[in-house]
Simulated scan of single mutants.
Amino acid sequence: MPIPRTLLAIPVSLALLCLSPPASRAGAASTPNTLVPLLVTRGEAPGAALLALDGTGSGSAPGGTEYAQAGADHAPAGTGRASSGADRAQAGTDYAQAGTGISRADHFRAGSITKTFIATVVLQLAAEHRLSLSDTVEQHLPGLVRGAGNDGRALTLRSLLTHTSGLYDFTAVTGGTIPVSPLAAVRIALTHPPADRGRFSYSNTNYVLLGLVIRQVTGRSYATEAERRIIAPLRLTGTSFPGSRTTLPSPHGRAYAADGSDVTDLDPRVAGAAGELVTTLADLDRFYSALLGGGLLPSRWLREMLNTRTAHGSYGMGLFPVRLPCGTTVWGHNGRISGSYVRTAATVDGRHVLTFRVNTSEIADPGLEPALLAAEFCPRTS
Rank of each mutant, 00 (worst) to 15 (best):
H74P: 10
T79R: 04
D87E: 07
S299W: 03
T136P: 00
L125N: 05
V353C: 01
G335W: 00
A98Q: 00
N206C: 06
G318W: 07
A86I: 02
I188L: 14
A28P: 06
A29D: 10
E66R: 15
T310N: 08
A375K: 02
T100E: 12
L17G: 00
A48S: 07
G294D: 08
R220Q: 13
L133T: 12
T136R: 04
G80V: 04
L234Y: 02
P193H: 14
H74A: 15
A271H: 05
L7G: 10
G176Y: 00
G71V: 12
R323I: 06
P370D: 13
A346R: 01
A61K: 06
V217C: 06
A9K: 08
G313D: 15
R380H: 13
L131Q: 03
L133W: 03
A232L: 13
E44R: 10
V173T: 14
G57A: 15
R357E: 08
T41C: 05
T239A: 10
D365L: 09
A72K: 05
S58Q: 04
A184S: 09
Y202H: 09
E128A: 15
G238N: 04
T6F: 15
C326M: 05
D196V: 09
A68K: 01
H352G: 03
F377G: 11
A374D: 06
T34C: 13
T79W: 15
G272F: 04
D196E: 13
A61Q: 02
A364H: 13
I230K: 00
P32T: 02
R286V: 00
Q69A: 15
A371Y: 02
L284R: 03
R300I: 11
G92Y: 08
G313I: 08
R197C: 05
V348G: 06
L50D: 10
L266S: 03
S244P: 06
A364N: 11
A148P: 14
A311G: 07
T329N: 04
E138N: 07
I178A: 03
L281V: 11
L8F: 09
F241S: 05
L292I: 11
A89N: 11
P182W: 06
A98I: 08
G313S: 12
L296R: 05
V36N: 07
R235Q: 15
V217S: 01
G59H: 06
L16A: 13
P242N: 14
P233C: 04
L236Y: 01
P37H: 07
N206Q: 01
T239V: 13
A28H: 09
S132G: 11
L266K: 03
A89M: 09
T65K: 15
N359C: 13
T41M: 15
L190A: 05
L39Y: 00
H107I: 14
S13N: 12
T237R: 12
N359V: 15
M305A: 14
P21M: 07
S165T: 11
S340G: 11
T381P: 00
G99W: 10
R245D: 13
P179D: 04
A26L: 07
P370L: 10
S165H: 00
A223G: 02
I3W: 04
R5I: 15
G176I: 09
G198K: 03
G367W: 13
